[in-house]
């Protein structure tokens, strides 16, 4: 019993090591703002090997190299655009999770706006049409109204003719 308790305790002591993600490299930063900048950069860059992960989450060696390059360029005082640009030059536009707006990607960026705009047009069309039909075509003409009230009053003579 004692032995198994000790074994269990030892096992639990290993948990922090198991949880430590080996994708996390140790980088030193001068300030918290710098660290946040690094984190936001690496979360916007896509791993070319494991294509649905950003390089912050990926364990692939290539992602590690890319993180190191981002860190090295940051330490050299490069701007975010320069850093992302340097990686795009090597790996292609693919590594951007936020593609630049240019002639090839304009449709990608514009599609949500186009769809929303189209939806608004459809809704507006439906509203306008229903308003117009309310105004121009009253449900019953005066003659029909008079006939309807006669029928409701119990005069059946009109029914057959309708």
């Amino acid at each position: 019993m004692l032995r198994s308790t000790i074994a269990l305790a030892l096992l639990f002591m290993l948990v922090p090591f198991a949880l430590a993600d080996d994708a996390r490299d140790v980088y030193g930063f001068e300030s918290q703002a710098q660290e946040q900048r690094f984190q936001s950069l690496i979360s916007e860059l896509r791993c070319p090997k494991c294509q649905n992960q950003n390089i912050a989450d990926s364990n692939a060696p290539i992602s590690k190299d890319m993180r190191e390059e981002v860190y090295r360029m940051m330490s050299d005082g490069a701007s975010n655009e320069e850093i992302v640009g340097a990686l795009v030059d090597r790996f292609g536009e693919f590594v951007r999770y936020k593609p630049e707006v240019d002639s090839r990607t304009i449709l990608l960026w514009a599609t949500p706006a186009i769809v929303v705009f189209g939806g608004l047009l459809v809704v507006a069309g439906i509203i306008i049409r229903s308003r117009r039909s309310d105004q121009s075509e009253p449900a019953l003409t005066d003659e029909e109204r008079a006939r309807a009230s006669r029928i409701l009053d119990g005069d059946d003579s009109d029914r057959s003719s309708g």
Binding site: P48, K49, A60, P61, I62, D65, E69, R90, F91, G92
Partner: peptide
């Protein structure tokens, strides 16, 4: 160290 590989954009 994979430096040329990195510059070439080698990913696999």
């Amino acid at each position: 160290r994979g430096s040329l590989g990195f510059d070439l954009g080698v990913y696999g």
